[in-house]
Structures are given as C-alpha cells and as structure tokens.
C-alpha cells in the first residue's frame, strides 16, 4: 500500500462552510442550531437549482429528518461530503444527504448494528488470514469513527485540507484511491475500512426500505424499478413474463402498509 494519491489543485474557497460551522459550534454550543445550518438542509437548499428527479409535484422528495445521534460535527461534515460525492445530485436522484443517506448511516451506527449486536467480540485480537474477517476490538461505530478520523488526516496530509472541503473531483479521486488501497492509514487499513464497512452502509442507505432513513421517497427503488411491497406476485409472474412490470414505476414501502 502506498500513499500515491494524484494531487488535484486544492480548492481554497471550499473550506468556508466547515470553518463557519466550527466557529458557530464553538461560540454557541448552547444555542439551538437552526435547521438551515444542520448538515442535511444546507445541501437541500443548494439542490433547489439542481436537476434532480422530480416527484409528481415537480419537486424532488428529500430528507426532512435533521440532527445526528452518533456523528459529531467533524464526522458529519466528512460523511455528508462523502455521500454527496458517492451520490451526486443528478438526473437520477437528489444528492446523497438529501436522499437521507447520512441519516441512515448515523442511525445504524447509533443503533444495535453500530454497537456490535450479535457480533463475536471476545479476544484475543490477533491478525491473520483476511478470510476470517476483521479482527478488531472495536464496535462498528467505533471502527467507523476511527476510520473517518484517519481518512480525514490522510486527506490533510495529501491535499493540505480536510476531506469535506476538497472539491468533488478531489474528493472522488481521494475515495477511489482509498478504496483501492493506495492511501495508507496510520493504524487502520483504510481500504478494508472503506470496502467492508463504509461501502456496504452506503449501498444499504440507498436501497433499504425508507423506514431506516435512507432511500427517501424510495428514490433508488424508482431509479431501478423495484416495486417494493406487498409483492404478492402469483398472477404477475405469469402475466408479466418477459414484459415490463407496471408496478415498478410506483413502489410501496413498509410505511405504506403500516
């Protein structure tokens, strides 16, 4: 593993939001943070001009859940920037944060998954064959956060800036290099961290039932044509053999039957 990220020109203007959030957090930690300043809605406001898939009303359905249970401000900034790179606002979906992907990951880490439920946690913790799976004395939440901190330091080392203020092009290149094992971590294997923990959470955030906070408006189900519930298809399987299934355009989720 080498530290050979291709350098892209740093974006000096990009740090403004992060600095502002930090100053605000320091100066007024007891004050309620207005919705417009919490991570999700900032990009939501930016999105108004973006070309996103529109709901029937013409406006894209976006995340309306604010406030994190697990992430601190730096972690939120990293994760939001990452998700808006991995899921940019485009003709297919709104940006990742507006799709609820950050809320999804935050809630998973704060919940039983993040706390290591049903995962064998007894020591000793020895390193060995990768095929045995990760051998770290960390819960998934702790592992996620340790990786964010190391990745952020790697970004600073390579670009002179924290990850969330890189341009989208720089951030994307950084993630590509990290996933490919070309960004050395300090104590962690950052490629393993990204590929075994972060990436699966990203895919789940996109495609799990909206019940868990991601896939807002079933935007990813609509994108691929997954019809969701109730999925009683005994007749459909005959009628739509080899033909488009009309229900795929209008999926239903658990909430629609609850």
């Amino acid at each position: 593993m080498t530290d050979s990220v291709d350098f892209l020109p740093p974006d000096s203007a990009g740090s403004a939001r992060r600095v502002f959030l930090k100053q605000l957090a320091a100066a007024s930690s007891s004050l309620p943070l207005g919705k417009a300043l919490a991570g999700g809605s900032a990009t939501a406001m930016l999105l108004q001009s973006a070309d996103a898939t529109a709901a029937p009303s013409g406006k894209p359905v976006i995340n309306t859940v604010y406030g994190y249970q697990s992430f601190g401000p730096d972690e939120a900034a990293f994760v939001e920037a990452m998700l808006n790179i991995m899921c940019p606002a485009d003709h297919l979906t709104p940006g990742g944060v507006d799709c609820g992907l950050a809320i999804y990951i935050d809630r998973q880490l704060a919940g039983s998954f993040g706390q290591g439920a049903r995962r064998y946690a007894a020591g000793p913790f020895l390193q060995g064959a990768a095929q045995c799976g990760p051998q770290l004395p960390l819960t998934p939440e702790q592992y996620f956060k340790a990786g964010v901190a190391e990745a952020d330091r790697a970004a600073q080392r390579l670009y002179g800036q924290l990850f969330d203020v890189l341009t989208p092009q720089q951030g994307d290149a950084f993630l590509q290099q990290l996933a490919a094992g070309r960004v050395a971590g300090e104590q962690l294997d950052l490629a393993e961290w990204f590929n075994s923990l972060v990436y699966p959470l990203f895919a789940e955030a996109c495609f799990a039932d909206p019940l868990y906070g991601g896939n807002v408006g079933m935007v990813f189900w609509k994108m691929i044509g997954y019809p969701g519930l109730p999925a009683t298809h005994a007749l459909d399987v005959v009628q739509y053999l080899g033909k488009p299934y009309p229900g795929a355009a209008n999926p239903k989720s658990i909430a629609d039957f609850s």
Binding site: Y120, A121, A122, L126, A129, C132, G133, P134, Q135
Partner: peptide
C-alpha cells in the same frame, strides 16, 4: 474459528 491448514492459528469469525 477458521484456519485453512492444520499448522495455522485459527481466528474467530466474528460475523459469519
């Protein structure tokens, strides 16, 4: 726990 050969030290599969 898992190992591929009998002369290796096996490690626990923490999530199978």
């Amino acid at each position: 726990t898992l190992r591929h050969q009998h002369n290796q030290t096996a490690l626990p599969v923490r999530w199978m």
